[in-house]
Amino acid sequence: MSNFREAQRQAHPTKTNTLSLGIICVLILVLVMQVWLLTAALNESLDGNNAVKWPAFIASSVLFLAGAALLRYLPDPIRHARRVRKHEEASRRL
């Protein structure tokens, strides 16, 4: 099996830091856009303009799904270390 990822991890130990902060920044940006969409849709809806509320809902849902998908790439170094340790123990037992 390729040890490319492990080598990369050793070469750039702060990569997970950058990734975590990047994902958090994107999530905050998504949240700000959703707040804007919600207030705009509510304002227009109360003013009798119903053309905005459904597109705003769809856009907000898409942003949420994009944010949720982004969580998949959130680094988990503790779980990764545990997995590596388990793998090492298993190979030692063999």
Partner: peptide, 16 residues
């Protein structure tokens, strides 16, 4: 943050 984002999407749905 993702949970809040879900709440915003639900709120937009409620407005709709």
């Amino acid at each position: 943050l993702c949970l809040l984002s879900g709440g915003m999407a639900v709120g937009s749905g409620w407005v709709a």
